[in-house]
């Protein structure tokens, strides 16, 4: 085995041993990293995604028409490249 390979094998062995210890400690501490599941706040169903339907809908929304929409995010704490807050385009 070459010197380089030997060093790599050694590094990997060390990383595995260290990661095992760190993971065990984190598991014991029930770190949030361990299990930030989408079950938090009862939103597990979101991950299921859409289901089928054998029903119709009374919500009317099929007309095309010219594009007239701007993104209006509900989350205003993201700092966008155009500055923080609303995602609406900034008027010139």
């Amino acid at each position: 085995m070459s010197d380089k390979k030997l060093r790599a094998a050694f590094a990997i062995a060390g990383a595995f041993a260290a990661a095992c210890s760190l993971a065990e400690t984190a598991q014991a501490a029930k770190s949030e990293e361990k299990c930030f599941g989408v079950s938090l706040k009862g939103k597990n169903d979101c991950a299921a995604g859409p289901g089928t339907s054998c029903a119709g809908t009374s919500k009317t929304d099929y007309q095309g028409g010219a594009w007239k929409y701007v993104p209006k995010g509900t989350c205003t704490s993201i700092v966008t490249p155009k500055g923080k807050g609303s995602l609406e385009p900034i008027a010139d």
């Binding site: 706040k41 704490s77 993201i78």
Partner: peptide, 16 residues
């Protein structure tokens, strides 16, 4: 970004 929206946690600023 994803976590913030899944957990309704809108407290801190999020730098991009």
């Amino acid at each position: 970004i994803w976590r913030r929206h899944m957990s309704d946690d809108d407290a801190a600023q999020l730098e991009l």
